[in-house]
């Protein structure tokens, strides 16, 4: 008499049909369903994580226009762009000369002044310290401008020069130059 088919009776279908290396069809099913469910969970998870990134309306509010006319040489104004301060400084000839002269100084984040301005009397910067995001002082006449005549961040003591470049302190990078363009001679659009 033939042996009863132990593979189907004792272990359930599939389980017993072992490959020579000891794996079964069921192992494959386990792996395939785990991989399928895992991928699905990860993709769904991404939807939730991505929901925390800036939303479409936040991304849309992305440009601000500034009239430069009222800003006299040596003065600066602060405008808001994307919820952050933007510094617009009308530089004096002296400040421009100093910025250019320092192109060859030892800079932590080397960049020539010419790469940081479109028209050299107008310096446009994100007023956010590249250390931990405080707003540096130096916009108001009474403010400390730091040891390099630009800006000084009181939070942890970063000094920026008249080109907005980091010169001393914990900040790793120069103050960022936002994208902007001259709409005409007296107006710029930021963003």
């Amino acid at each position: 008499m033939a042996q009863p088919d132990s593979t189907t009776t004792a272990m359930g279908e599939g389980e017993g049909r072992k490959h020579p290396d000891g794996t079964t069809r069921r192992d494959f099913l386990y792996l395939a369903s785990a991989a399928f469910a895992g991928t699905g969970a990860a993709l769904t998870g991404w939807a939730f994580i991505h929901s925390m990134n800036p939303a479409a309306d936040v991304l849309a509010l992305a440009s601000t226009e500034v009239n430069l006319q009222p800003i006299a040489p040596g003065q600066a104004i602060t405008v808001t762009w994307r919820g952050k301060p933007v510094f617009v400084r009308h530089r004096t000839a002296e400040e421009i000369a100093k910025a250019k002269a320092d192109d060859s100084a030892a800079l932590p984040d080397p960049q020539p002044d010419s790469r940081r301005v479109q028209r050299e009397q107008w310096l446009v910067l994100l007023g956010v310290c590249t250390h931990l995001g405080c707003v540096p002082l130096g916009q108001k006449p009474a403010d400390s401008k730091g040891d390099y005549g630009g800006w000084f961040c009181p939070c942890h003591g970063s000094h920026y020069d008249t080109s907005g470049r980091i010169r001393r302190g914990p900040a790793p990078r120069n103050l960022e130059v936002p994208t902007y363009s001259f709409v005409n001679d007296s107006n710029i659009r930021i963003g």
Partner: peptide, 11 residues
């Protein structure tokens, strides 16, 4: 991602 914007704001 933490901010949900370009600065600490409503989101």
């Amino acid at each position: 991602w933490l901010w949900g914007g370009f600065s600490v704001d409503n989101p």
